[in-house]
Design a protein around this nucleic acid. Structure first.
Lengths: 153, 153
DNA sequence: GTGATTGCAAATCTTTTGCACTAAA
DNA sequence: TTTAGTGCAAAAGATTTGCAATCAC
């Protein structure tokens, strides 16, 4: 270790172990993408971003494989998909329960730890249904509430 | 009144007035779509659904116009866009602050009145940013937590 | 009439798929 | 080997755009 950076912000497991535990064959592409995704701090990426990053890092991976990999990782619990923007999918390396600030102007996501926010008085779900996940998205904009009308006060 | 239904669940304003207040020319298409959207109870629609509905009602409107109209209505504060599914946009006729249950299996949205749920301890937004909107999406599934593995156990 | 609006079809963008090829076990 | 995984290019959706035709004022 220690050949390409200084901070090992996530002392968790090696990418290889993660893949094996998830039952995913540790192929060159998965290992490479896994390193990009998991060896730094938690992050939020789109397929396109990860693809560009891989290209940068001289990793040869097709966009199709990026998508396949992101979904396989998600299915395996290694990533979590965050829906904040119709038309673009973000994948979050933080799979713990938490929420997000979303800057619509820049497309930037920022985690809000679960402990820092609480949702209460949640009504019971419709009959026969159970809650599988609660997502709180706090949309932010450059100061100046621009929020048209607001209608209710 | 009373020519096509029984309940006038929303005694608010006439579609014509709404459009004029919004500064939108009351064209045949906008009036027709506005009636479909605003003359019943609050609802959630996708462009495709509204298009099908219009066709059903013998209203001739192109999909492009449906999209334009939905966005114009949204910009005018007559609709609110709800992002719950990457790849599909839902438009909600309820523009008050509120949240949603989302059934991923059926793609069905159900309102949760704001008074029935509260988000507390929201941390302050990043410097220079202000909150423009808080969306809470409660994803539900047919009973049986199916939520795979849960990773930690 | 005049400019806003519409329709249509083509263009974009993101994501998925089919299939021959490659690589892990 | 044997089967999972990958790349590419084409397909599929959803949404947008350009522009001539149409409509509200």
């Amino acid at each position: 270790m220690g050949m390409h950076g200084m901070s090992t912000a996530r002392p968790y497991k090696h990418v290889l172990d993660r893949l094996q535990e998830a039952g995913l064959r540790p192929t060159r592409q998965r290992l490479a993408l896994g390193r990009l995704l998991f060896e730094g701090e938690d992050r939020h990426v789109t397929a396109e971003q990860l693809h560009a990053e891989a290209r940068h890092a001289r990793i040869s991976v097709s966009l199709a494989t990026i998508y396949n990999t992101l979904h396989q990782f998600t299915a395996a619990g290694l990533l979590r998909e965050v829906v904040v923007d119709a038309g673009r999918s973000y994948f979050d390396t933080n799979v713990h329960e938490h929420h997000h600030f979303f800057n619509e102007e820049t497309g930037h996501l920022l985690d809000i730890e679960e402990t820092r926010l609480s949702v209460s008085d949640l009504p019971p779900p419709p009959a026969g249904m159970c809650i599988s996940r609660v997502d709180v998205i706090v949309r932010v904009a450059r100061t100046e509430p621009a929020i048209k009308a607001q209608a209710a006060e």
